[in-house]
Design a protein around this nucleic acid. Structure first.
Length: 857
RNA sequence: GCCCCGGUAGCCCAAUUGGCAGAGGCAGGCGACUUAAAAUCGCUUCAGUCUGGGUUCGAGUCCCAGCCGGGGCACCA
C-alpha cells in the first residue's frame, strides 16, 4: 500500500480541526463578514451585546462561555435575515492595570494595551462574529472625553454634586468605594480588605432621584430579564413606605424628623434614638450637660472603632447613651427621652427614629437593656376578619397566654387591634396607619413618606487609571467646570510617576497638571481624583453606534435606529452594580433628550460560571482550565459546542461533567456527511426521501423557538438527531445520492453555523456553495422555511389507558375524532382484558393523543 | 429572620395548554470492521421524576406541608 496516497485520502476525509481552522480564519479576516457599516436600510435590525471584558491577562473559560452563547444569538438572528450589530470593546480602565504598573514601574497603558491585543487575538481565534470595525477602549481619550461630557451634563442638572460624608474606604487599594462595591460581609469586592469609614469630600451622582423610576420600570423587564436579577435590584433599591414624623425637642430650635413604616404605633413610642455619628447627635449632645457630652464623645469614639462587620452583627448587644434631652410626641404630647445608639444608621432615613419597643425587636432589645418603658399599642391576639376584630367565645373562656413584649422579650409585629392609642383605638393596623398619617398631616407635624436603601453613587476614586474629573477649584474653593471645548482633559503620564496608593490621587503629584487657570483667568487647581470605572460601562452600548464620532458621544439618530440593546448577555455578577448604573444613566440621557427609551437592555441573559469538580476555578486552588490549552487540544468549534450543549445557559458548567471529546466526535460525524453527499447542488429535495425530509423540516420548525428561548442545549441535541437520521438514510435508507440527503446536510451546516462556525463553513464549501464571497459564507445562507406539509404526520400513536395505566397503543390518523378514537379503544382486546368485568364509569377521549377509560371502583 | 430559584437514569440534561417519563450526550456493556488496536459504525443495560398529602379520568408538570441544594437581602426604622 502506498503510504502517500493513503495519507492523501486521510487528508480529505478525516475531520482535522486544525486544518479547518487554519483554512477559515484568513478568509474571515479578509472578508470582514460581520461589519455592519454597510447595513441596508431595508433589513430588520437586532442589537446583540455581550458584556465587554476587562483586559486582565488572556481570556479564560468564563469568557469562552459568554462569547460562545452571545455568538449563537447573534448568528441565529443573522440566519433569520436580520442585520445584527454585535460589537466588542474593552473596559480598560481600572485597578488591575494600575497595580500591575506599580509592580513593574511602568505606564498602565502598556500592560492594558498588550492585554487587549492578546485578548483580541484570542477572540478572533475563537471566531466570535464581532464587528471589528467598532472596537472601543474606555481608556482611550476619545472614549473617556465623553465620560467627562456626561459628567458635565449631569453637573449642569444638579445630578453630579460634591458632599462631605462618611465614605467606604478600602485600606489596601487606598481608595473610596461605592456602596455597591462593599460586600455584605463588609469587605471590598476588589481587594477583599475590611472596609473602614472615612469622612471625605467626594463627588456623587444623584441616583436616589431616580429610585422610584429604577424600581417601577423593572416591571417593564418582567419576563425579559432573569427573575433573580429583578429581585436583586428591587432589594437593592429597597423602598420603604411609611411616614415622616416631626418631634419637637425641648430646648432645640428645629424639630427632629424621623421616618417610620409604622405610624400606627405612634402612641407606643416611648423614647427616641439618634445615630451617634449624625450631626444631630453631636448637636443634641453639645446642648446637654458636660457629663453627657463626655459620655457621648466616649461612645462615639467606640462606635467608630467598630468594623463594618461588627457593626452589622444583628445579634450583638445593644448599646447607647442617654443624651439628657427630651422630645415631645406630636400626637400624644408625651415627653420621651432621647438616646444616641449605633443601631440607628446616620445615612438611612433621617438618622433618627421613634422607638416603639413593644412592636419592634431592635427597640425592645434596647429598652430591656436600659430599662426603658414598653407600651403595647397593638393587641395582636385580636384575630381579624378583614379589618373588623372578631372575638370568639372560645377565646373569652381561655386564659390568654402572655404576649406582653416586656415579659416575653418578643416584639409584636403582626396585625391586630389598636389599644392605648386615643383616636386610633379599635382600628386595625392598616387602617391605623392611614388614620395616623391623616392626623399628622392635619396637625402639620408629619406626612406620608418613602425612604430607600439605595444611596447616591459615589464616583470619586483616589487612583490614577481612570477618567479625570473635569472640575477645577479656585483659591477660594469655588467649583469651576471645564468648558466642553477643553475636553478631553487627558490623563497625564510622566515617566517614573509614582502610582503607589497613598490615600490621595497620584495625579496630585503632577504639579504642572494640577495648576491651571479658570476660563476667566483666575488661578485654579484641578480635581485630582478619577471617576469610578462603572461610569465608563454605564453608556458604552451607545458609543458602539459610532465609536469614531469625534463631535459627540453618540448620534441620537443612530440610537433611534439600533437601541435599546435587544439582547444583552453576561454574568450575573453584574446584577446590581453595572446594570443599575446603566439603567440610571439611560434614564438621565432620556431626561436630557438624547435617547427616546428609558431602559438600555430590553432582554438579558445571564450565563452561569464554568467550574471544575464542583468548585469555582481559581489560581490559588490550582484548578484552572486554560482557555488556550482547551482550544489547542479540542479545537475552537468543539469548545464552543460544549458550552452550548452542557445544559441551560444560566446553569454552571462543571468542566468535569462535560465531554469536549464528545463534541468533537459529533462535529466530525456531521462534517463527514458533507463529503458523502452525491446529489448535485440544486437537486430538487421534493424528489427525495420523505421520511428524512420530515426529520429535516421538523428541525427547521423547532429550532428557532429553542434558540429564542435560550435552550441552546436542546438545539444542539436536535442537530445531533438530524445527523443521526442522515447517517441512517445514507447507510440503510435511500443512500447518499438522494436529494433529501443533500437538503438535510445543508440544513445541518446552517444549524451548526450557530455553534461551530469553522466546521459549518467547511461543510458549506464541500457542499459546493462557497465561491470566495462574503455572501456565500454559511453565516448568510439563511434559515430555510419549514414545509408545513412535511410537518403533518400521517400516522400518530394514540395511547389507551385504563384507570390511568397504559394498556394499548393505536396507530391513528392525526385527524381522528374523539368518538371514533373511543370506539377503537373500546374494541381493543388488550383494553377489554384490562377492564375485565368491571363497569365503565367514564371515558375521556382527547383525540388524537389519548383515551382514558375509568372503571367503577 | 424575609424573599427568589432548583431537585427526572451512575453523570450532564430533555419532556407545547396536565396526556406514552426519554430527545441528545457522557460513562458502561455487546457486536461489526481490523493480524491487533485506535478511529468509525451498529445494537444495548440502567430511573418511575426528593418526601408526605391533595386536586384530576390522568400529575415530572397544578395546590399544601416538609427535606435537601443554590442564590439575594438583612440592626434599613
Amino acid at each position: 500500500m502506498s503510504s502517500v496516497s493513503h495519507h492523501d485520502e486521510h487528508d480529505e476525509n478525516d475531520y482535522d480541526f486544525r486544518r479547518i481552522e487554519a483554512r477559515w480564519a484568513p478568509v474571515w479576516e479578509e472578508l470582514a463578514p460581520f461589519s455592519t457599516s454597510d447595513a441596508p436600510e431595508s433589513k430588520p435590525r437586532k442589537y446583540i451585546l455581550d458584556m465587554f471584558p476587562y483586559p486582565s491577562g488572556d481570556l479564560h473559560m468564563g469568557h469562552a462561555e459568554v462569547y460562545a452563547l452571545g455568538d449563537i444569538v447573534a448568528r441565529y438572528w443573522r440566519q433569520r435575515g436580520f442585520t445584527v450589530l454585535h460589537p466588542i470593546g474593552w473596559d480598560s480602565f481600572g485597578l488591575p492595570a494600575e497595580n500591575a504598573a506599580i509592580k513593574r514601574g511602568a505606564d498602565p497603558r502598556e500592560w492594558t494595551y498588550e492585554n487587549i491585543e492578546q485578548q483580541k487575538a484570542s477572540m478572533k481565534r475563537y471566531a466570535a462574529s464581532f464587528d471589528w470595525d467598532r472596537v472601543l477602549h474606555t481608556s482611550d481619550p476619545e472614549y473617556y472625553r465623553w465620560n467627562q461630557w456626561l459628567f458635565l451634563e449631569m453637573y449642569k442638572k444638579g445630578l453630579a454634586y460634591r458632599k462631605d460624608s462618611w465614605v467606604n474606604w478600602d485600606p489596601v487599594d487606598q481608595t473610596v468605594l461605592a456602596n455597591e462595591q462593599v460586600l455584605p460581609d463588609g469587605t471590598s469586592d476588589r481587594s477583599g480588605a475590611v472596609v473602614v469609614k472615612k469622612k471625605l469630600t467626594q463627588w456623587y451622582f444623584k441616583i436616589t432621584d431616580y429610585a422610584d423610576r429604577l424600581l417601577d420600570d423593572l416591571n417593564q423587564l418582567e419576563g425579559s430579564w432573569p427573575a433573580k436579577v429583578l429581585s436583586m435590584q428591587r432589594n437593592w433599591i429597597g423602598r420603604s413606605v411609611g411616614a415622616d414624623v416631626d418631634f419637637v425637642i425641648e430646648g432645640h430650635e428645629a424639630p427632629v424628623t424621623v421616618f417610620t413604616t409604622r405610624p400606627d404605633t405612634l402612641f407606643g413610642a416611648t423614647f427616641m434614638v439618634v445615630a451617634p455619628d449624625s450631626d444631630l447627635a453631636a448637636e443634641l449632645a453639645s446642648g446637654s450637660t458636660p457629663e453627657v457630652r463626655a459620655a457621648f464623645q466616649d461612645y462615639l469614639e467606640q462606635a467608630q472603632k467598630k468594623s463594618e462587620i461588627d457593626r452589622q452583627d444583628a445579634t450583638r448587644d445593644k448599646t447607647g447613651v442617654f443624651l439628657d434631652r427630651w422630645a415631645i410626641n406630636p400626637v400624644s404630647g408625651e415627653r420621651i427621652p432621647v438616646w444616641a445608639a449605633d443601631y440607628v444608621l446616620a445615612d438611612y432615613g433621617h438618622g433618627a427614629i421613634m422607638a416603639v419597643p413593644a412592636h419592634d425587636q431592635r427597640d425592645l432589645d434596647f429598652a430591656r437593656t436600659y430599662d426603658l418603658p414598653i407600651r403595647m399599642v397593638v393587641d395582636t391576639t385580636a384575630p381579624m376578619t378583614g379589618t373588623i376584630p372578631v372575638i370568639t367565645e372560645e377565646m373569652l373562656n381561655e386564659e390568654p397566654p402572655t404576649i406582653d413584649p416586656a415579659i416575653t422579650g418578643e416584639a409584636l409585629t403582626g396585625d391586630g387591634r389598636l389599644i392605648n392609642s386615643g383616636p386610633l383605638d379599635g382600628l386595625s393596623k392598616s387602617n391605623a396607619i392611614k388614620r395616623a398619617i391623616e392626623l399628622l398631616e392635619e396637625r402639620g407635624t408629619g406626612r406620608a413618606s418613602k425612604t430607600y436603601r439605595l444611596r447616591d453613587w459615589l464616583i470619586s476614586r483616589q487612583r490614577y487609571w481612570g477618567t479625570p474629573i473635569p472640575i477645577m477649584y479656585t483659591e477660594d474653593g469655588e467649583e469651576v467646570p471645564l468648558e466642553q471645548d477643553a475636553l478631553p482633559l487627558e490623563l497625564p503620564w510622566e515617566k517614573g510617576m509614582d502610582l503607589k496608593p497613598k490615600g490621595t490621587s497620584p495625579l496630585g503629584g503632577l504639579e504642572e497638571w494640577v495648576a491651571t487657570t479658570t476660563p476667566d483667568g483666575r488661578p485654579a487647581r484641578r480635581d485630582t481624583d478619577t471617576m469610578d470605572t462603572f461610569v465608563d460601562s454605564s453608556w458604552y452600548f451607545l458609543r458602539f453606534l459610532d465609536p469614531r464620532d469625534s463631535t459627540k458621544a453618540f448620534d441620537p439618530a443612530q440610537a433611534e435606529k439600533w437601541a435599546p440593546v435587544d439582547q444583552y448577555i453576561g454574568g450575573v455578577e453584574h446584577a446590581i452594580l453595572h446594570l443599575l448604573y446603566a439603567r440610571f444613566i439611560t434614564k438621565v440621557l432620556f431626561d436630557l433628550g438624547y435617547v427616546s427609551f428609558t431602559e438600555p437592555f430590553s432582554a438579558l441573559l445571564n450565563q452561569g460560571m464554568v467550574i471544575l469538580d464542583g468548585a469555582k476555578m481559581s489560581k490559588s486552588k490550582g484548578n484552572l482550565v486554560y482557555f488556550t490549552e482547551e482550544l489547542d487540544r479540542f479545537g475552537v468549534d468543539a469548545v464552543r459546542l460544549t458550552m452550548a450543549f452542557a445544559g441551560p445557559p444560566e446553569d454552571d458548567i462543571d468542566w468535569a461533567d462535560v465531554s469536549v471529546t464528545g463534541s468533537q466526535k459529533f462535529l466530525a460525524r456531521a462534517w463527514r456527511l458533507s463529503g458523502e453527499v452525491t446529489a448535485p447542488v440544486g437537486a430538487d429535495p421534493e424528489t427525495g426521501d420523505t421520511a428524512l425530509r420530515r426529520v429535516t423540516h421538523k428541525y427547521l420548525s423547532e429550532v428557532p423557538g429553542l434558540i429564542e428561548a435560550f435552550k441552546f442545549n436542546v438545539g444542539v441535541a436536535r442537530t445531533m438527531e438530524l445527523v443521526n437520521a442522515i447517517r441512517k438514510a445514507i447507510d440503510s435508507g435511500p443512500g447518499a445520492g438522494d436529494p433529501a440527503v443533500r437538503e438535510a446536510v445543508e440544513v445541518v451546516a446552517v444549524g451548526l453555523s450557530l455553534y461551530a462556525p469553522h466546521t459549518a463553513d467547511d461543510m458549506w464549501q464541500r457542499l459546493g456553495h462557497f465561491d470566495g464571497t462574503k455572501e456565500t459564507l454559511v453565516a448568510f445562507a439563511g434559515w430555510r422555511k419549514a414545509d408545513p406539509l412535511l410537518l403533518v404526520e400521517d400516522q400518530v400513536t394514540a395511547v389507551v389507558q385504563v384507570d390511568g395505566k397504559v394498556r394499548d397503543r393505536l396507530e391513528v390518523s392525526p385527524k381522528i375524532g374523539n368518538d371514533e378514537l373511543e370506539a377503537l379503544a373500546r374494541a381493543s382486546a388488550a383494553v377489554q382484558r384490562a377492564i375485565g368485568d368491571r363497569e365503565i364509569a367514564q371515558v375521556i377521549a382527547r383525540a388524537p393523543r389519548v383515551v382514558n377509560i375509568a372503571t367503577k371502583k
